[in-house]
Design a protein around this nucleic acid. Structure first.
Lengths: 147, 147
DNA sequence: GTCTGTGCAAAACTTTTGCACGGCA
DNA sequence: TGCCGTGCAAAAGTTTTGCACAGAC
């Protein structure tokens, strides 16, 4: 995990070789406040750089490197079949996902920060976790009073 | 969510039409104590019933129905690209996943049972959640002292 | 007959891989 | 030269879909 003092410190990681493509992918990830899929990134590249010389495999490969070095975290939202990627700003984030409109709402803080969790035999060393909440956002509850 | 008093109550759900294929899929799910993939189920069907007349699409369709009615929960473990399915015994389960040997270890209880979680605008109605823990199990820590 | 579930094959979709080329030290 | 990243196409793997048929009511 890479820790930074604040968002202004955000820069392309030194340990990863810079290329035009990786810089663009980094820019998109760093501008984004929500997890994005590889295809999202690819489409956004097509918009900004013309539908020119970017390959989807380049996106996957760059994301793979970023993830391997701990700069990006990968997750599968809503048990879906596509992976979403998000730049790691030191502290991780969790989301609540509206079951109706699929909007993501960030949690104020990680509920596990100071929590002790017991596994079956109490002999598991926990190093990380993933959490997703499901439910209904304010707007969807107002629209549909059954909820 | 379907609540049952205990495991002996476990029976094929009345609201779903019984077929030979669905009963077999149900049996495999109910015998299994860990999440299984559609392909796992398919292979186990091939073993028990001969490699005869079962189609993988039948497995997916049955799982889809079970999930839709709330009897089965689907998840993607370890950010992988395959979905795993598990029969819902009323109370849900969480797992700790060993990053080395990939073994699953069940949590003693859900850490969210009585927890209040705040979202950004405090206007989200939480109805469910998914949690995965990562780390190292006892055996893998002993084998590899670096951990 | 009607309805629903199924097997089979094909398609769709996400992700990975092989390979040749291009840029750069 | 050697190395690494890339584009392109093809492949792999998971999941879905179309269609005709079989079985139940």
């Amino acid at each position: 995990m890479v820790y930074m003092k604040n968002c202004e410190d955000l820069a392309f990681p030194q340990e990863i070789k810079k290329t035009k493509q990786r810089e663009e992918i980094f820019r998109i990830l760093s501008e984004e406040t929500e997890p994005v899929s590889a295809v999202d990134i690819y489409n956004r590249l097509a918009q900004t750089c013309g539908n020119s010389n970017f390959a989807i495999s380049t996106v996957y490969r760059a994301l793979g490197i970023f993830e391997e070095k701990g700069y990006v975290s990968k997750s599968t939202l809503m048990g879906g079949d596509m992976a979403y990627y998000e730049w790691n700003y030191g502290t991780h984030k969790h989301y609540a996902i509206c079951l109706k409109c699929h909007k993501l709402i960030a949690l104020k803080k990680c509920p596990f920060e100071h929590m002790k969790i017991e596994t079956e035999n109490d002999n598991f060393m926990i190093t990380g976790h993933k959490l997703e909440l499901y439910g209904y956002c304010k707007e969807c509850r107002i629209e549909d009073e059954d909820i």
